[in-house]
Design a protein around this nucleic acid. Structure first.
Lengths: 212, 212
DNA sequence: TTGCATCCTGACCGTATGGTCAGCTTTCAG
DNA sequence: CTGAAAGCTGACCATACGGTCAGGATGCAA
């Protein structure tokens, strides 16, 4: 029973190892923070010797940067839901769904992202000042237009966006608290659905965008 | 010019030093996380030699625990706003005000608390399973009663609470992001007021508790 | 098959960190 | 005034961590 000694192609090796390392790193960084994470722990979780990590990622900082950039890209992707929409009901609904899905599917990445921002975004400052700001300004403009067109109440677009980020992100970052208050069990499919519906309902009603 | 060599009383010395250490620790833990924080940094910030820290707090863990418990108590205090209220408008308004004030006045503590929960609440697990759960259950009951009395729409009380926590906490934990998107400047008094008003308005309207 | 680039890793190193301790100074009760 | 308790600290230690490196193993193009 030799465990299928397929002679991996070079490309595959690299891709698979990088993937394994990034996955392990995401988890360890999420659980311990940047300072508390150790290359040894990440290596163990990835099933590789520590020295091998340094072959793929020269430094801990570089590895961390990769992890953060990964989640940032996922985060930005969800943001597109906003653009296609014709009004606040479609747009905000879709955005909440997308961000909640991220909180559910990538809780570790979400935590790393939150941690990074909480600590002053030492790695992502550039992104925040360019890409994020641009994206935000664009979305603010869209919301402003919706308000002008009478599709929703005149709510401050920025604070509305913060509210969307906060409520959805919360289910990842504070997942442990939610789980504890849920009797120690993770939210079920139904509970996730309820969470999404509640958020959507309260916010859409709150901004006067609910279909009369 | 001997800098006012008042001969401090023993009690005062202890209280003042503990206070200085806790304040410095809160800041360093908030900025670097538990793993990234160093006793040396905390000592420098507190203006004391490192060995002196260990005189008051035996270990880094013990110091961290004190910081976390401090903020948890502040957090719980704000929770009382809920009880005195006669309806959702009073109660939720007051709670949002209180929690926003915490985010503004104790951003470091808020971050430490968020970090603690994000990393699985290694220190606070007991509190969460007893005090926090109790508090939450009580508040859920209050909200349920408000719904029964027709004072607000039938929104899931738990998810409503999460929403309150999330939106208010966000202004502390993601303060750096908000500041960056605000042109690099901290929110002004007016902007804080607007933030509070927006949150209150959207949520209260969202749950159908706005005075007709 | 050969040669080489890529991949891999055990052993090692310098440093920084949490923590200790012996011995000093200061407060203060009796 | 005196002695003991409380407060203080420079110097020290063991450990753990990020990172290095020499040299071996492996795939792959020619």
């Amino acid at each position: 029973m030799t465990e299928s000694t397929r002679p991996m192609r070079r490309q595959d090796i690299r891709r698979e190892n990088e993937k394994a390392i990034l996955l392990a790193a995401e988890k360890v960084f999420a659980e311990a923070g940047f300072g508390g994470a150790t290359m040894q722990l990440i290596a163990d979780l990835a099933g590789l010797p520590k020295a091998n990590l340094h072959y793929y990622f020269a430094t801990k900082e570089e590895l961390y940067r990769s992890v953060v950039q990964n989640i940032f890209e996922i985060w930005l992707q969800a943001a597109n839901c906003f653009d296609a929409a014709r009004g606040p009901i479609d747009g905000i609904s879709a955005y909440i769904d997308a961000k909640m899905e991220i909180s559910r599917r990538h809780p570790d990445g979400s935590k790393v992202w939150a941690s990074e921002v909480m600590h002053g975004a030492p790695v992502l400052q550039d992104y925040m000042e360019s890409i994020l700001r641009e994206w935000t300004d664009g979305r603010v403009e869209i919301i402003r237009r919706w308000i002008e067109e009478g599709k929703m109440d005149p709510v401050d677009p920025r604070h509305l966006l913060y509210m969307l980020w906060a409520t959805t992100q919360h289910y990842a970052d504070f997942g442990h608290q939610i789980e504890t208050l849920n009797g120690g069990k993770p939210l079920s499919d139904r509970q996730w659905r309820e969470a999404k519906e509640n958020i959507k309902r309260v916010i859409l009603t709150g901004i006067g965008a609910q279909p009369a």
